[in-house]
Amino acid sequence: MVAATVADHVEPHRGDPVKFWDGRLQSLCKPCHDRDKQREENGGRPIVAISCDGWPVGS
């Protein structure tokens, strides 16, 4: 488990100051934000973590 160190915008603000300041935030660790979240926002497919029992984590 890694401590969350980044406040991430749930909906990308794309430079909109209202969304930047008033949008919903979620806590993420820096590696997840920099790798996974940025990949999703740039048109890539989300990365789904799979647990040792073969089921997606967080489902």
Rank of each mutant, 00 (worst) to 15 (best):
M1S: 14
M1T: 11
V2G: 07
A3E: 13
A4F: 07
A4H: 08
A4P: 09
A4I: 02
T5D: 11
T5F: 04
T5P: 00
V6Q: 01
V6I: 14
V6W: 00
V6N: 01
A7L: 14
A7T: 02
D8M: 03
D8W: 00
D8G: 02
D8F: 00
D8H: 05
H9K: 08
H9F: 05
H9N: 06
V10A: 09
P12H: 02
P12R: 05
P12M: 02
H13F: 15
H13R: 09
H13T: 06
R14N: 15
G15T: 09
G15D: 09
D16H: 12
D16C: 15
P17E: 13
V18F: 11
V18W: 15
V18I: 15
V18P: 00
K19Q: 15
K19F: 05
F20L: 15
F20H: 15
F20R: 14
F20M: 12
F20V: 11
W21V: 14
W21G: 07
G23F: 06
G23P: 05
R24H: 08
R24F: 03
L25C: 07
L25Y: 13
Q26R: 12
S27N: 07
S27L: 15
L28S: 00
L28P: 00
L28T: 01
L28Q: 01
L28C: 02
L28W: 00
C29K: 02
K30F: 11
K30M: 08
P31A: 10
P31S: 11
P31R: 12
P31N: 09
C32A: 08
H33M: 08
H33I: 01
H33V: 04
H33L: 04
D34W: 01
D34Q: 14
R35M: 11
R35P: 00
R35I: 13
R35F: 03
D36Y: 03
D36A: 10
D36R: 08
D36W: 05
D36K: 08
K37M: 06
K37C: 00
K37V: 10
Q38G: 09
E40L: 14
E40Y: 12
E41P: 01
E41L: 12
E41D: 15
E41A: 08
N42K: 12
N42L: 08
G43V: 02
G43E: 02
G44P: 03
G44N: 03
G44T: 03
G44R: 03
G44D: 07
R45I: 03
R45S: 13
R45C: 00
P46C: 03
P46W: 00
P46Q: 09
P46E: 06
I47F: 07
I47N: 09
I47E: 07
V48Y: 04
V48G: 02
V48W: 03
A49F: 10
A49T: 06
I50D: 04
I50L: 09
I50H: 05
I50F: 06
S51F: 04
S51N: 14
S51K: 11
C52P: 03
C52H: 14
C52T: 14
C52A: 12
C52S: 13
C52Q: 13
D53T: 13
D53G: 03
G54L: 04
G54I: 02
W55M: 11
W55S: 10
W55F: 07
W55T: 13
W55H: 13
P56T: 04
P56C: 06
G58T: 02
S59W: 04
S59F: 02
S59Q: 07
S59M: 06
S59V: 04
